[in-house]
Amino acid sequence: MRTITYRQALNEALDEEMARDSRVFLFGEDIAIYGGAYGVTAGLWQKYGEERVIDTPISENAIVGTALGAALTGLRPVAEIMYIDFIGLCMDQLNNQVAKIRYMFGGKCTVPLVIRTEGGAGRTLGAHHSQSLEAWLIHIPGIKVVMPATPYDAKGLLKSSIRDDNPIVFIEHKMLYNTKGEVPEEEYLVPIGVADIKREGKDITIVTYSRMLLFSLQAAEILEKEGISVEVIDLRTLLPMDIETVVKSVKKTNKVVIVEEDCKTGGVGAEIGMQIVENAFDYLDSPIVRVAGADVPMPKSPVLEKLAIPDVDRICSVIRNMLK
């Protein structure tokens, strides 16, 4: 099978869905001529023209608000918020309008809207361009939150998101754009809300998502050589969360580590852990452990930045301790 980058996979998803459905259009800052801050929309403005790939002013609140208006009146916008750090600027539209409008109006409308954004640390960009804010978003009923880790999932999930009639926040990771993976030439979709077991194992379960999947798989590889068999679950979608797949794994391994890049306090891992407690407490042999981001604004210094998020060594040592 051919191998392409995460960036290219996303670009193909947008291209294919735009070709398939003339109601799909792209809307955001620097996405047209420039091709997106991380190059995801490259070439699409040239191919589809300025009515379908629209550069907007730096107006995040109005980007999400107008995308909502367009979604309510017959179009299927894919809006881009360049960094998830900017989502505070449009949180009113996202939380109060986008997420609630269908419910508030008694189900008498649909909001086929995708908000693409990217987050995460790794480029030493400091506190305003490195955050992982997905925990804010899973607290908002009415949206779905998708966070793919591999090129295959990125493409299949973005295509599914564009075809979904619900509002979706699709969070990419800046350190994944250049990663490569197998992606078939032929069309496929990846279902939203379904986790994927990326590596099977029997001694312990890692639950993770986005870039931390890559670290978790590396850790599993190392631990395998030490005789520890690690199962790695990639949630892929955080809301709705596929807790069934997690519970099934916990019943098999009886031990869980959650690996997440976001700040530990009130993070996604807290929700995952509590759902495991609610659904599989009797199967746990030891307390659930979180390997998570530090509760600090992301520091600039490469040394500090590395310390602020999980790494492979930390994942390995946490698991070794749990299995002692």
């Binding site: 109005a62 999400v64 608000g65 208006g69 309510l72 309008q97």
Partner: peptide, 13 residues
């Protein structure tokens, strides 16, 4: 305001 402006964009597109 956002919804109205977006509906306007939708009409135009």
């Amino acid at each position: 305001l956002g919804i109205a402006t977006g509906a306007g964009l939708s009409i135009k597109l």
